[in-house]
């Protein structure tokens, strides 16, 4: 059952991502991104990361996707131009070149992953031998909160200041020219 659900979520993510890059209509592609992000959140659950899955849904679907749809609506005239502009391109590669490039990269990744799992690092083997891997009954969220406030306090503060800088920068950039 668990295997079947995992394969269902993986197939949903990969197929809708493939459809996302092949579809012409940007609005439909953005709504397909919605499905991809939900399926990825489902995949995080199978790695026993429930808090990361919920955060993915909150941040991506609630924030990032709304922002993307906003930007799409504010630059809406591109919808028609994107359908025809297949000639005179020199910066972005033609489709078959980028497809062969990404397929080659996929081949390299798959080969290296399969070769790598034959000799996994010893900390993973040790964790498996000890039986100290995450189990579904663990109290994930409490442990994450404790770790954030004790062991990872410095990265947490840095990321907070960085997020504030990025948001102020975004607000400054998107200001109208005349209103300064």
């Amino acid at each position: 059952m668990e295997q079947f659900l995992f394969y269902a979520f993986a197939a949903m993510a990969i197929l809708s991502a493939l459809l996302l890059v092949s579809i012409r209509n940007t609005a439909r592609a953005l709504f397909l991104l919605f499905i991809v992000l939900f399926a990825m959140a489902g995949l995080y659950l199978f790695a026993l990361a429930d808090f990361v899955a919920i955060t993915q849904i909150l941040v991506y679907v609630g924030g990032v996707l709304i922002l993307l749809i906003f930007a799409f609506m504010l630059s809406n005239k591109e919808l028609l131009a994107d359908l025809q502009s297949t000639s005179q391109r020199f910066m972005s590669l033609p489709n078959w070149q980028s497809m062969s490039l990404s397929l080659a990269f996929l081949a390299v990744l798959v080969y290296s992953f399969i070769a790598w799992t034959k000799e996994a690092p010893e900390w993973m083997a040790r964790a498996q031998a000890d039986g100290s891997i995450l189990s579904p009954t663990d109290d994930n969220i409490q442990t994450l909160g404790l770790k954030f406030m004790t062991q990872y306090i410095l990265p947490f503060e840095i990321i907070s200041v960085f997020l504030m800088m990025a948001l102020i920068g975004a607000a400054h950039l998107s200001r109208r020219e005349g209103s300064r």
């Binding site: 991502a17 493939l18 996302l20 890059v21 972005s92 980028s98 990404s102």
Partner: peptide
């Protein structure tokens, strides 16, 4: 998923 994203960036 990574290679699909790479394709989207390139193409």
């Amino acid at each position: 998923i990574f290679c699909i994203g790479l394709y989207a960036v390139l193409a």
